[in-house]
Amino acid sequence: MHIPDGYLGPATCGVFYAVMLPIWTVASKIVKKTLKAKQVPILAIGAAFSFVIMMFNVPIPGGTTGHAVGGALVAILLGPWAACIAITVALVIQALLFGDGGITAIGANCFNMAFVLPFVGYYIYRAISYNAPIDSNRRVIAAGVGGYIGINVAAFLAGIEFGLQPLLYHTASGQALYCPYGLKAAVPAMLGGHMLVFGWVEAIVTALVIKYLLKTAPELLGPSPSLRNK
């Protein structure tokens, strides 16, 4: 899901930085307004948590493993705007300090994984678990569905971003300058892997983590903490 440098052209990268700028501004204003002084470290903890989730190898049938992004999970735990900041911080650290995900593609990666994924995942979770008691199984199912749909929408958008490159950037003879695959190849490739494998990993991890938290620490999923209401 992390788009590396060199896959997207300069204008595409620029557009996504421009799109993310107001989102980051709104996110920081909302979080600053709603975050109690005592909760300041929770943003950094949320960011580190998003970073570390991606390092958990999840076993899947066939003896292999995959990993979750955890975007919907972080949004359910922190609220979508705080999750946007936390995941952005994790993505920037990954790209800048550990070479995972492109530096020029930070805007696009943040749009897919720090904005679309947590927001889609969170609002699907909210819609399905609407009025459900705190110990209801509906919350577990809602979290799984949110995780699955959130990551697939993000993968679909990443596929479109890849697929637009040969249309936007090519030489007169038709040579691609960036990602060489058009929409017909890039979208099914991105969606196929996520709908069949990684989406399920995301759904299982999100649902099971919420299930365990409901059992062991339901206060962390309570109905109205300041951050989650926004």
């Binding site: 300041v40 470290p41 948590f49 958990f56 983590v209």
Partner: peptide, 23 residues
């Protein structure tokens, strides 16, 4: 999968409470 999910939830539980100590 249950072990991984339990680990992630335990990590979040510990981290959340750690936040207050850090503050």
């Amino acid at each position: 999968q249950h072990i991984v999910a339990w680990n992630i939830s335990a990590l979040w539980n510990r981290s959340y409470h750690l936040g207050e100590d850090v503050y």
